[in-house]
């Protein structure tokens, strides 16, 4: 399963279109000669075959064009990210403010006799002005993760 030790020199000769006495004697080197010969023939033949249905250059230019489009699309998506991010963050903060207002905001007095501790806890939470900000931040982080996770 090993190549002849004179494989290198036989190969060089085969490419030059020659063969010495060893190459003519040695089985493995004869194989090398035959294979180099056959492949040179196949290569020349393949290069002679009619040009592809669409000219190779056109194929190349077209694929380059497609690639440029793809690149531009990717770039456009990427440049839109801050905008999408800002929009989602703003919406989230707004939603937080609305919920906060609905739950009482700062203007409403605490219910006189908060029936359950859960209700009073909810009320206490709604009193915190940080609340909308927390929701906004969480939403922004989630969005950022979603948008930038591919990079």
């Amino acid at each position: 399963m090993k190549e002849c030790e004179r494989h290198g020199s036989t190969l060089a000769q085969a490419r030059a279109g020659q063969a010495d006495a060893h190459a003519a004697e040695c089985d493995r080197c004869r194989d090398t000669l035959a294979v180099v010969d056959a492949l040179a023939h196949l290569s020349a033949d393949a290069n002679r075959l009619p040009a592809p249905a669409a000219d190779a250059r056109v194929l190349f230019l077209r694929s380059r064009f497609v690639a440029r489009l793809q690149g531009e699309q990717r770039r456009a998506e990427r440049s839109e990210r801050p905008l999408v991010f800002a929009r989602v963050a703003a919406l989230a903060v707004m939603a937080g403010v609305i919920v906060w207002t609905l739950l009482g905001g700062t203007t409403v007095e605490a219910p006189a006799g908060a029936a359950s501790s859960a209700a009073s806890l909810l009320y206490a939470l709604s009193r915190l002005a940080l609340w909308p900000l927390v929701v906004g931040t969480l939403a922004a982080v989630a969005t950022a993760r979603f948008l930038w996770v591919e990079d």
Binding site: A56, L59, F60, R62, S63, R64, V66, A67
Partner: peptide, 11 residues
């Protein structure tokens, strides 16, 4: 395949 190769390469 040639065309697809170039598309992949340039993409």
């Amino acid at each position: 395949v040639l065309q697809e190769t170039y598309i992949r390469y340039l993409g």
